[in-house]
Design a binder for these strands. Sequence first.
DNA 1: CAATCTATTTATAAAGC
DNA 2: TGCTTTATAAATAGATT
Lengths: 186, 186
Amino acid sequence: MGRRKIEIATLKDPNTRQVTFSKRRTGLFKKANELSILCGAEIAIVVFSIGNKPYSFGHPGVDVIAAKFLQEAANSSDAKQIDAQGNNPSNELGDMNRLNQQLSDVQTQILEEEKKGAEHDERLKQHQVTQLSQYKELQASYLELQHRVKDYVNAIEVSECMILLAQEPVVGITKQMTATKRRKKN
Amino acid sequence: MGRRKIEIATLKDPNTRQVTFSKRRTGLFKKANELSILCGAEIAIVVFSIGNKPYSFGHPGVDVIAAKFLQEAANSSDAKQIDAQGNNPSNELGDMNRLNQQLSDVQTQILEEEKKGAEHDERLKQHQVTQLSQYKELQASYLELQHRVKDYVNAIEVSECMILLAQEPVVGITKQMTATKRRKKN
DNA sequence: CAATCTATTTATAAAGC
DNA sequence: TGCTTTATAAATAGATT
């Protein structure tokens, strides 16, 4: 899709790789967004750069999707090992749910932080008109911080989804892409 | 990208929507695969169709990611015992608890920073004249926050790996495009 | 439905700012 | 690192089987 065709193999030049990473990541998220809108689908994506920097995309939001999956996992978990009380002996799901709950709380915290940040913003503007540019820098790093935390939280949630997906053969996990033609089993 | 340009709005015709969903989902996963290979990135995607059927993509496999994070865990020497093979004596609950603990810590950090932010806010009000120095202090504080949260977030990342490791015996999530063979480890 | 087949639209590789 | 621009490679909408 460019001046030249490129091989789908790891880009050796760090610079080229970085540029490509940015462009394609953006493109991927755009595609994901279009897919979610066009087809009413819910999508969560987490990407770790080669430097382990996380980037995430979610519609309506990774947390929502994670919660949704957890619920489904809980329902279909009957197929697994559950005792008479309806509890999972190994309590994995319980832990997962608790974990998810905490993640939710953390996100709430983050949102509150955002509000605080906004208020902060107001006051600072009133008193530091002169330091506007510097302030903006501060705000940017602050937002970046929050964004980073959010990305990590999202990464954890997607991981949960993936893990549960792997554990629950409930529905098919997509595998095939180009040439592979594996028939669905189970 | 087709015979005609289409609006990015929910497709009302169920049939068209279904077809588009399949095509674009495939395309999205293909793009994700290319991105991961070209840029050495790790990607996880979870998609729920309008009918709530889950589809996922992950590259590379969970085991690979887990191994990678495990190394980082070893460095941060998190008091976790790992044998020569890189395996740990099955204590999923321990991992869960640790993760919960880490998350709890992050929450605490966030709350603390919230207080700090409020404090700074106060000071700025009281000492409007010394805005610049106050500002710099605030900025330093935020940078510190950034670093601290980053450290905690790294801790979470490691914990996440632990969970993945614990789940490992289950199944690999990835069935990446090219039909890679998943090696079985007891 | 799922696979094929084009006409077109998009994404993007390269190069320059 | 982030935009632009431009030539090309890819993706895909719509139709067909």
